[in-house]
């Protein structure tokens, strides 16, 4: 007798495909945020599952901070062209030059500056929806996020004024100037993402796997030494065998010492891991409310 029951990945997949198709059906000008990171790689596969044999009914959009790992941008561009998808890249440095994004004196990180850059891109193309790869398990403030997350005309998220979300009935209605962020991977965990990558045999950028890199120890973690992050006089540079677990800017992404060379290795490593994935991002450590503040301002 056949078993009419879905395993956890198949369940998460059908849920996400349903969400993707709701976006295609309900919005006039949606975009899909694609960074080349593991979560957005899953999003692209889900888009193929939802829409093939048609072309993807939305362009890909990426905000380039100028501090990306070069491997990531190479991967992003190649993957978009393999899929025959339109890729729009908007750069933080252009937004700074145009006065759209204003760094505070001495601010090196471009994390915060992604926000105005993204909002400007949404305005420029009049996008009414942006699909993102955020997951609720990443962080406490995200645990209350909806699949369809409403943003007002200033791109802001109001955690106290969210639309209740019932069954699989998503309220996609927005007025002109407002938009929706949609998160098809809301219910996925880091483990699900890697298991899905394994099941679907998805290619991911090399930096997720073990490699040698020069690093310095700062704020309790190993950061990659680059032109943007030169070692301070009192710091010792070490060459380590590392991989990245979650990709942020090259100046704030913590490296984990790891021999993991395959997706199976990574899955084994996560199963045994003793810190969460965001534990390796310097930008999140600042305060427990850090994420909540950025989300309110319109962070991804």
């Amino acid at each position: 007798m056949p078993s009419y029951h879905l395993d956890h990945l198949a369940y998460l997949e059908t849920e996400a495909v349903h969400v993707m198709r709701e976006v295609a059906a309900e919005f006039e000008r949606p975009a899909l945020l694609f960074s080349g990171g593991k979560d957005s790689i899953c999003l692209l596969r889900l888009a193929e599952k939802a829409f093939r044999p048609s072309d993807l009914p939305m362009p890909l959009l990426n905000v380039d901070t100028g501090h990306h790992f070069p491997e990531l941008n190479e991967f992003r561009d190649r993957r978009a062209s393999e899929l025959g998808a339109k890729l729009i890249v908007r750069k933080v440095e252009d937004a700074i030059a145009a006065g759209v994004a204003v760094p505070t004196p001495g601010e090196i990180s471009r994390n915060r500056l992604q926000i105005p850059t993204l909002l400007a891109a949404i305005e420029e193309f009049r996008f009414d929806c942006a699909i993102g790869g955020a997951r609720r398990d990443e962080e406490k403030a995200r645990a209350k996020e909806r699949f369809f997350s409403f943003r007002d005309a200033f791109g802001q998220w109001d955690p106290k004024n969210q639309r209740p979300e019932l069954w699989n009935l998503y309220n996609a209605r927005v007025n002109p100037g407002e938009h929706m962020r949609v998160f098809p991977l809301s219910n996925w965990t880091e483990m699900d993402v890697w298991e899905y990558i394994r099941r679907e045999r998805l290619e991911v950028p090399r930096i997720y796997f073990s490699h040698r890199r020069l690093a310095v120890r700062r704020g309790g973690q190993w950061l990659p030494v680059t032109d943007l992050l030169p070692p301070k006089p009192n710091e010792t540079v070490r060459e380590l065998v590392v991989r990245v677990r979650t990709i942020g800017d090259i100046i704030s992404t913590g490296l984990v010492e790891s021999p993991a060379n395959t997706v199976d290795d990574i899955i084994a490593e996560i199963a045994a891991a003793r810190v969460t994935e965001r534990g390796s991002r310097a930008d999140d450590k600042t305060s427990e409310a850090a994420m909540e503040d950025r989300k309110k301002a319109g962070y991804f």
């Binding site: 609720r136 645990a143 209350k144 955690p159 209740p164 219910n187 965990t189």
Partner: peptide
């Protein structure tokens, strides 16, 4: 999860855990 709740000391919305 949310700061407002911590301040009021009550949970005010639906949060999802995994």
């Amino acid at each position: 999860g949310l700061r407002a709740e911590r301040e009021q000391g009550i949970t005010i919305d639906v949060a999802y855990r995994y």
